[in-house]
């Protein structure tokens, strides 16, 4: 089988980026970004996860089908989150028994 063999220096570069990301997320936790504290933490985590998926898990070098499958999990996760949280987020928009806004 002639699969793509990822050069070692890419693995080490990704490793360095992941360690830096860990340091960054700890540092960021002690800064006050106001409303954006959680967002910053999640964005850093998403970037780190993407690096792992693309390079350590070889998705960058895989065919389209693997891209689709790798994305599908995360898309469906967002469906689960978005459509569930839609309910608690909007519970007091239209209280039961109140007249509909016309």
């Amino acid at each position: 089988m002639n699969h793509h063999i990822v050069p070692l220096k890419i693995y080490f570069a990704i490793f360095a980026a992941l360690m830096a990301g860990t340091a960054l997320t700890v540092w960021a936790a002690f800064q006050d970004f106001g409303e954006f504290n959680t967002l910053v933490a999640v964005v850093i985590a998403v970037v780190k996860a993407a690096l792992v998926v693309l390079f350590f898990m070889h998705v960058k070098y895989s065919d389209k089908l693997i891209w689709v499958f790798a994305s599908a999990g995360f898309i469906w996760l967002i469906i689960l989150f978005a459509f569930t949280l839609m309910d608690p987020m909007t519970r007091d928009w239209l209280p039961v028994g109140a007249p509909l806004p016309m």
Binding site: A29, F30, Q31, A41, K48, A49
Partner: peptide
Amino acid sequence: WIFLFPLLYLIGRH
């Protein structure tokens, strides 16, 4: 774990 760490350990630390 990359997600668990900030979400569990790093809330409201500032």
